[in-house]
Design a protein around this nucleic acid. Sequence first.
DNA 1: AACGTGACCCTAG
DNA 2: ACTAGGGCCACGT
Length: 128
Amino acid sequence: MKKPATPPPAAPPQERNFFHDVHQVTRLVPPGRVTSYGAIAHYLGSGRGARTVGYALMAANLDAITLQNEPPVPAHRVVNRLGQLTGRHHFPTPTAMQERLEAEGVRVEDDTVVDFEKLFWNPATELE
DNA sequence: AACGTGACCCTAG
DNA sequence: ACTAGGGCCACGT
């Protein structure tokens, strides 16, 4: 048999496991709390795939618009390890991220989350 | 199939 | 203590 190279006709559009996983974890972040890319990456086992996490979040934002089937992803609750809103530039407006965070009670000063360590929500610890 | 890209993180001097 | 550079993972074309 020469491997008919017959891909599953009814191949379900399985979203990228990684991306989907990142989206899922991000959605688990409760309002008023924030997490970091590295935390999610480490929780997913990527370890140094923090970069991919950010990439996934960006795609998540676009997918949310394209795929209305899935709930929106609170990407504004994900910041870098320093608590900086590094992804604010990728939001509809450069201040949307900060506005949303403040709306949840998270204070943001100079594009940095105040008391980031206090509000930090670690999936590996919280979800365990 | 390969290269380039990207909302990062870590280690070294 | 701070700054600089490289590395890693997954996706898109």
